[in-house]
Each structure stands twice: as C-alpha cells, then as structure tokens.
Design a protein around this nucleic acid. Structure first.
Lengths: 138, 138
DNA sequence: ATCCTACGATGGACAATGTCTAAGTCAAGC
DNA sequence: GCTTGACTTAGACATTGTCCATCGTAGGAT
C-alpha cells in the first residue's frame, strides 16, 4: 500500500504532512487500529496533528474505499488498511485480538431470495468469534 | 419470550419493577433497539427509571444470553431479543433498517483449519449490507 | 521565485454513548 | 413486620466522535 499516496494524489488530494503521516501509520503494522490509536501514533511523527484531522482523514479514506471500517464489538470503530483484498475477521473474545481470515465459499450466495426482503444486497461481513491460543492457555 | 421473567426468577434475580419494564420493552416489537431507545420506552411505563438501570439490566441480559448485542455500524450498540433462534442481519446502508435473515449453509464450516490460527472458534456473525426497497425507490 | 486562493488543519466546544459511585430503597426470606 | 443485601438512583465522569470559526499552506498562476 506504499502507493497509497500516489493514488490519493491521483484523486486530486492535496498532499499535506498530516495526510502523509496518517497514511504512513496505516501502512505500518497491518493491525486494526482505532481512530485514537492512529492519532497517538501520528502524534509521535507530527506532534501538532489534531484529532479532528485524523478523524477527517480516516473518514475520507473510508469514503473512497482505501480503508475499511470494522465494528467488532469494542466501543471504538477500527480501521483496516487491507481494503483491496476481501477478507473477514476472527476476534478473540478475551483479549480482543483480530486476525484477517478467508473463508471458503461465497456467503452472498447463501442468502436465498426469500430472505432478501426486496433488498439489493451488495456485501457481507463475517465476524468469527472465539478464543485465541494465548488466552486459551492462560 | 414472555417466560423471560420466569427464567430470570429461576436464576435468582430479584424481580423489580424496573427489570420487568425492560423485559416488557424488549418483548414488544421485535426490533433492534439502542440502549437509549429501550430507556425511552421504559420511561413511558415507569417514569422514574434511570439510564444506569437500563444499561445494567441490558448488560446482565446479554451476559446470561437472553439478549444479543448487535454492532452494525451505527454508533450505538443495539439489543436483539431474538437470542434463542440463531440468525444474522441484513442492514440498509441508507436508512439503517435491520432485518433478521437466515442464510443457508453453515458458515462455521467454511473456515478452514489453516485459517483458524489456533483459535477455538465458537460462533460467527454475518452482516449483509444493501439497500432496502424503500430507499431504492426514493 | 513569489503571490493567491481555495482546500485543509487546528483546537476547543459540543454531542452521543456508556460507566462508575455513594447513598437511598425495596424484594424476599425469616 | 423486620432485616439485609441486592437493586436503583442521580449525576459526575469517561470515551468516542462531530462541528465550526479561524488560521495556515499546497500547488497553480504570474
């Protein structure tokens, strides 16, 4: 995703230090950060960046589809930079760890017409729940 | 779920007016209410009920498995009284309407061992996304 | 290279949602 | 009808997110 900056430029984004830093944070560890965690990491690289800017930038990245919002069940939304490869999530109920997973099959096809109630169905998110190996032994 | 009160009594719950009212609200329309909506409805039946009590009671109901928490993507968690019949959700991206749906197949079986990373996987939530008929014509 | 200007950043107030605590109240057993 | 500990209450507090008026600056124009 190091060409994220290029794609943003191509969309006519003004390339500011703040946006660069947010992109760099997301490009770092491919973990699922909350907005505040993104802000915390951004601050270490650019101390004067404001919370509002981080929220704005994340919102824009979500809107254009470069980043996905994930709501597991924690209070805060998390941001998933791995938007270009479809995947689902496996969440540890104890420690909250999140892994990307790739189930087989096509869950969209598993929803019969009679269960669609006239909706135009465009996507599906799957959240597997369990306990991670760390928490299982603890 | 009208025997919910019985089940709660069986668990040693003290049966207070407040808890009865919260149970009645959930037993009403089987919609997916936020905590504040539950509180708003409870207040009409018992004006002096406090927000804290509603939150406490909902939390307890979730803990004992009588009610499910649903995080679609709105800010507030929603509470789903239909906990005894497994089901998933279909959400309208425009108006936020939620329907219960029942996909065919067993999504748990669709997660290969190699994609489980040592987790003990106990469940899965599926959230289908789309546009409801109302919003599609509007 | 410098100037202009619209787009983006800032910070702080505000809003929404949820949690905690100390003190008062009451359901249920005796 | 007491007693007692579980339950409720009000409101302060915490967390997460949004809005707005103002300021700064990236990038094109000169």
């Amino acid at each position: 995703m190091s060409d994220l900056l290029e794609r943003l430029r191509g969309r006519g984004w003004r390339m500011t230090a703040q946006r660069r830093v947010v992109a760099e944070v997301l490009d770092g560890d491919h973990v699922h950060l909350t907005a505040d965690e993104v802000h915390a990491r951004a601050v270490t690289k650019l101390p004067e960046i404001s919370r509002a800017t981080v929220y704005n930038t994340l919102g824009e990245l979500v809107t254009i589809g470069e980043v996905l919002e994930v709501s597991t069940d924690k209070r805060a939304k998390r941001y998933d930079p791995n938007a270009h490869q479809p995947h689902h999530h496996l969440v540890c109920g104890q420690c909250g760890a999140i892994r990307d997973v790739h189930p087989v099959g096509n869950p969209l096809a598993d929803l019969p017409d009679t269960e669609r109630f006239g909706f135009t169905v465009s996507g599906v998110e799957m959240t597997y729940r369990g306990v991670c190996p760390n928490c299982a032994t603890a």
